[in-house]
Amino acid sequence: MAKPKVATASLAGCFGCHMSILDIDDRILKLAELVEFHKSPINDIKKFSERCLVGIIEGGCCNEENVHVLQDFRKNCDLLISLGDCATMGGLPAMRNHVPLEECLAEAYLHGPTVHNPAKQIPNDPEIPLILDKVYPLHEVVKIDLHLPGCPPPADAIWEVLVALLNNKPIDLKYGLLRYD
């Protein structure tokens, strides 16, 4: 039987959750025996070519490209896991949700203390993904099957969840593995 496939992506996140995946240490060898990594920054596969059992997504949705990637994952994966606080509640990027978008862009490109922008241009090229009005948790954009919060979620929690899923067992995280910080 072919190994189940796992895809991962980082949207509006810092890759810290991906670091936490790698933080399962030598268990990553066992994981490589159990699953095959498909589209993921870990192996640089860019496009879905096969159906995946699990999609693990770090980061919230802050621009239209994030939304497209997320919808692509929903289409191609049986189960979606939102990994980390940015994915589950917006996280640090969502701090901009308290400031109107126009003010955010003005601060970043016009008035910030380190800004050098003589043309007073705010980037608006069609090549650049359009920024959303605010940062959204993933489950407010597509259906998410499993949430694993944490900044980042402990490597043990990621391991426990994956092992439970692969063995069709209920997920029962012991105290300390479910955390928001």
């Binding site: 589950t88 308290h98 489950h139």
Partner: peptide, 15 residues
């Protein structure tokens, strides 16, 4: 939240 096993609230965030 930990004790009640809340992984993420089911309601939309109000920010």
């Amino acid at each position: 939240g930990y004790r009640l096993g809340i992984t993420t609230p089911k309601y939309p965030y109000m920010f």
